[in-house]
Design a binder for these strands. Structure first.
Lengths: 324, 324
DNA sequence: CCGAACATCTGGAACGTTCCAGTCCTCCTC
DNA sequence: GAGGAGGACTGGAACGTTCCAGATGTTCGG
């Protein structure tokens, strides 16, 4: 099949030549400059369309020093929590005329760091990092050349890097209070994480238990130790995220227990999974749309000249469903 | 906090100046050109490192006419089938020294088309499209300026665009044959799709049923009409994908039926969902790692000068699990 | 000791934009 | 009818690379 070969793509100069004007004028016309007469503008646009002209972003970026691109880094595409944040960042970016390019690290820490570098080299105007796996030194290095904001689960603040996070301790407290309100006392926490967010949730759980006078019942277990909890008479399990909550759910159902009649199960994150599973999970929702919006606002703030670090903390919300 | 302000990033010229050599030599040294003496190379590298030099990809791309970047377009981040393909494309790209930038369309057809354009403008050297939602005219337009390959569910071949697909008809036949082999005769198909892949699976189902002499039992229903099937005594349901299979599963379990004892359920795609759900889904697996590898190979083939269209079709594999 | 061959390095012209400083006009004002 | 004021347009210099055609030594065979 005689397909068009990789012909050199037409440039401003080509358009200018066939339209019989200077390249400067073509540039102005294409960008809608008011100083171009209507007739020539129309002619130029027609020619550009006809020869299939498309501007070269690399040339534009090189000249202007900015790309109108936002980089978003996530650790894994398989993490619905992260991908939902990406979508919200993207919506917010579009509002202010920025486009998003996405990079991910497939669970590999080194690869993630490479991606961050790469996006910087590409010339993005700002970076949104939705992963706590990026090493601090990589973040600070990145922050030296462009605005960086961490979104979601964050570690300790990194100098020069803004952040938008969720109050995980409060979220955990919401769960405990809810379960206590329903009369549960033996409430266990299931977690496999030693990451900052996981630790914060655990802390929130322990503190809330103590506040409720249930300090003696505090019990933290790994996901694969659920059987032990159930054997010991725990009637409610708060898992560190929806995925682990589902594992608990499966385990309980396998033992012939009814949820929530025999045992209550609560998750965290309100991912799609929470809605899909049966019974649907009670879980904690973070304001993901707001997160994206705030992240973009922080970046544009930096681009506008702000130099002090800003850390925003959003309030989580409990979503009560069938599981507890 | 006195954070570093957006200082102008150092360029080749800066490195050259502080190292006391010409910018050309710096360029050569950084790219590991053998014609640079070891001592100067080391010195230059040290200086570059010290001043925090990073090459500008836009300048490089502009000059060289290629970016070493591959664009990958998917319709939605929430589709595990697509994101798994992305990962495999990425692995394959890395093998040949290419990086991947990802764009998605959040289920919006117009946005998807914009993304395709945008990646082209960015200067990617090739495009992998993992979505059947991109309009043909957008694809052909894109194919005029860079190599494009469609991966996964494809519509009819588009001129100038290569493809790597799965034989959906054969996949559906595998399912039917498997169920027939287990003694089922009243096998229904559940589908809500009018997209090419869905239609192919339906066709495969109908043909296989007829070949098995079960033409009289052919029955196709929408996901929300599952109850009708069960009422009519269908004992096996082949769903168009894993998500719809899960819906069928839920519906059956809600009616108190046992799976697979009372009714068998089979999905398609072998997404994570298939493994997670209970009972685990029997489903059809596509060779996703191979898909990425083939896609990249087709692109490099085009970059190497090939001009005729190539369409590769991969064989699906049945994965038998607990559900049927 | 001359020239050639080689290793090492340099200057400048591109690449496709944007943008600044002009250059022409035409039209208005006094 | 001279003197702008603006409107419409142009030329060329950047932006940070790469790469080609040299320039400058150095070494070595004869």
């Amino acid at each position: 099949m005689p397909t068009a070969s990789p012909r050199p793509r037409p440039t401003l100069r080509d358009v200018a030549a066939t339209a019989g004007v200077s390249k400067s004028l073509v540039s102005l016309a294409l960008r809608g400059d008011p100083g171009v007469s209507e007739s020539t503008r129309d002619r130029i646009l027609a020619v550009a369309e006809q020869v299939g002209y498309r501007p070269s972003l690399s040339a534009r970026t090189l000249k202007q020093g900015r790309s109108m691109l936002l980089g978003v880094v996530i650790s894994s595409l398989e993490n619905p929590y992260q991908t939902e944040i990406v979508a919200s960042v993207e919506d917010a970016a579009e509002q202010v005329g920025l486009s998003v390019v996405l990079a991910h690290g497939s669970r590999d820490r080194g690869r993630l760091a490479d991606r961050v570098q790469q996006l910087g080299d590409l010339g993005v105007d700002g970076l949104v990092v939705v992963s706590s796996w990026v090493p601090d030194e990589v973040l600070t290095a990145a922050a030296r050349r462009l605005p960086v904001v961490m979104v979601g689960r964050t570690a300790d603040p990194v100098a020069g890097v803004d952040s938008v996070t969720n109050d995980d301790e409060q979220g955990a407290a919401l769960v405990v209070d809810h379960l206590v309100g329903r009369g549960y006392e033996r409430i266990a926490h299931v977690t496999s994480s030693t990451r900052p967010a996981g630790l914060a949730r655990r802390r929130g759980y322990e503190d809330a238990m103590r506040r409720a006078g249930l300090g003696d019942h505090v019990r933290v277990a790994a996901p694969d130790a659920v059987d032990g909890l159930l054997d010991d008479g725990y009637r409610a399990v708060f898992a560190r995220n929806d995925v682990e909550a589902c594992d608990v759910l499966d385990r309980a159902l396998d033992r012939g227990l009814r949820v929530p009649d025999d045992v209550a199960v609560v998750g965290y994150d309100d991912t799609l999974l929470a809605r899909r599973v049966r019974p649907a999970l009670t879980t904690v929702q973070q304001q993901r749309e707001v997160m994206g919006e705030r992240a973009v606002a922080l970046l544009t703030g930096r681009l506008g000249g702000r130099t002090d670090d800003v850390h925003e903390v959003l309030e989580p919300r409990l979503v009560v469903r069938a599981s507890g």
